[in-house]
């Protein structure tokens, strides 16, 4: 990795590493929710004859606990500083730098994600493995695909939040957009329940037409080898395609925003 990108990434990492207490507090909360959701899903599975929508016990435990861990890594609920900087006008300084702010933010975000993987992802995953036992993938390649899928999930989340930040150029108050995003990304990403529980047409529509399942359900399905390696590859390809599309949209929206800034003076 060239030097600038490395510096940006490590800055993102170190920035979050200073919030030690918040990290502990967050991991604790993830753990409590892990127990809560895991027991609920296991109880549902017991009532329904052992599985929920084709997920068995270890798959459900993995879905819940790694899901709690991914929550902080993907961070779809935290907004980027960009929104605040657009609102305050500080964004002009970002646009004046020789590096495209899209990439500046992206590398910083990857640094943040790395830190979260080492802390907020590992802690619930370990606790879940000890308390409930998680699913053990059959193929070694699954781990690599899971890493790829998680990276794609981080990027999808980043692009969406970058777009929300950019929307502050046109909207006076982006709280509405933010609330809408939190709602949709929670429900349609499979955070509350596995998407396979939904009626077939609805879950298919979400997978095909929106990037949201790629935020959580995608990596988790890859990890529990749902539908085998073939499906895992399909999930990854879909995610990567969404990353490409969303990055292009970000570039386009940013160009419009810059033009608006230059023409109207902000």
């Amino acid at each position: 990795m060239p030097r600038v990108q490395l510096a940006l990434t490590s800055a993102g990492f170190r920035r979050y590493a200073t919030y030690r207490q918040a990290t502990v507090a967050g991991a604790f909360t993830n753990t409590v929710f892990g127990f809560l959701r895991c027991y609920i899903l296991l109880s549902v599975a017991a009532t329904a004859g052992g599985t929920v929508a084709g997920y068995g016990g270890p798959e459900l435990a993995t879905y819940v606990w790694m899901g709690q861990g991914l929550l902080a890594v993907v961070a779809s609920w935290d907004q980027l500083d960009l929104a605040e900087r657009v609102r305050s006008g500080d964004v002009v300084a970002d646009l004046l730098r020789p590096v495209d702010p899209l990439w500046t933010y992206l590398w910083g975000e990857l640094g943040r994600a790395c830190f979260m993987v080492l802390t907020r992802f590992l802690v619930p995953t370990l606790i879940g493995a000890i308390a409930f036992g998680l699913y053990r993938p059959q193929h070694a390649v699954t781990y690599a695909l899971f890493a790829l899928s998680t990276l794609a999930a981080v990027l999808i989340s980043f692009c969406c939040r970058y777009l929300i930040g950019l929307s502050a150029f046109w909207l006076l108050d982006i709280r509405g957009v933010t609330v809408f995003w939190v709602f949709v990304s929670g429900f349609a990403s499979g955070l509350y329940f596995p998407l396979a529980v939904l009626p077939g047409w609805l879950s298919t529509a979400l997978w095909v037409a929106t990037p949201f399942p790629g935020l959580m359900q995608g990596p988790l399905d890859v990890m529990v080898e749902r539908g085998g390696i073939g499906n895992a590859l399909l999930v990854c390809v879909g995610q990567v395609a969404w990353v490409g599309i969303l990055l292009l949209v970000c570039k386009w929206a940013q160009a419009r925003a810059v033009r608006k800034l230059v023409v109207q003076g902000g």
Binding site: A46, T47, V52, G176, V197
Partner: peptide
Amino acid sequence: ASMLTNALDIATVFVLFSVGGGLG
């Protein structure tokens, strides 16, 4: 949005309810 979230919380309960036809 806050009403929608509340409705979704209840809906989640019933999505899970529908899987096995009962809860606990």
